[in-house]
């Protein structure tokens, strides 16, 4: 019994969620996701805009947080094909050379970066024929390469398209439960980070059918 507990414990991944959203009062999808994730036992949930309302990021504290966890989730709405500014500031400051990359910069090696983002455009918009002209993954290449340079695994991003048009009853609720499923699977170390999705991203459909 004791041996079992130890095994089970060691198999659990330590999960750190960074939630970055400056306009939470207007958020539906991200607010619902955050509300669900916030209280999951055994994970660390950080509301970046609550921790650093004046963008005064405590670099040492953030680096310690990274060291103490195995899987890092960035949860954010896509703003101009990038993260909200505070999360960009966080990357600029926390992912220092000598810590995250470069000479002796191997503190994040072997960890995993999982994106959980919402996009206003539809799946069709993010195609060569759509008004965004490129698949969503193309806009995420800076983050993917950031993870690579930090010797981190870049997991297939978890995405909600048309987040502004999504209705709360069905689409958002499904996306939130898919998010919860993702979190639970990561904790239990049974999530396939390399899972192939449509055009390189996964939605709640992929997770609920395959999980």
């Amino acid at each position: 019994m004791l041996a079992l507990v130890i095994t089970a414990h060691s198999a659990m991944a330590k999960l750190l969620i960074y939630y970055a959203h400056p306009g939470q009062a207007f958020s539906r999808a991200n607010a619902a996701m955050a509300a669900a994730a916030r209280d999951v036992a055994g994970i660390t949930f950080v509301d970046l805009y609550a921790d650093y309302p004046r963008h005064d990021i405590d670099v040492a504290r953030e680096q310690q947080r990274l060291i103490e966890h195995d899987v890092i989730i960035f949860q954010f709405p896509l703003y101009w094909y990038s993260t909200p500014s505070l999360l960009k500031e966080w990357q600029d400051l926390v992912l220092q050379h000598g810590f995250a990359y470069g000479h002796e910069g191997d503190k994040l090696a072997g960890k995993t970066l999982q994106l959980a983002l919402t996009a206003g455009g539809s799946r069709d918009a993010y195609t060569t024929d759509g008004y965004q002209q490129y698949p969503l993954r193309t806009f995420l290449t800076p983050l993917e390469q950031t993870a690579r340079l930090c010797k981190m695994q870049f997991a297939t991003p978890y995405v909600l398209y048309e987040s502004l048009a999504a209705d709360s009853e069905n689409d958002i609720a499904d996306h939130v439960s898919g998010y919860c499923e993702l979190i639970a699977a990561i904790i239990d170390d049974r999530h396939d980070f390399a899972i192939a999705g449509h055009q390189g991203v996964v939605t709640h459909h992929d997770l609920t059918t395959k999980a």
């Binding site: 400056p22 306009g23 009062a25 207007f26 709405p77 206003g120 455009g121 502004l164 048009a165």
Partner: peptide, 13 residues
């Protein structure tokens, strides 16, 4: 104060 973070509406899309 919030206008910066107000998401675009249906009309915009």
């Amino acid at each position: 104060s919030d206008s910066g973070w107000m998401p675009p509406g249906k009309q915009d899309v």
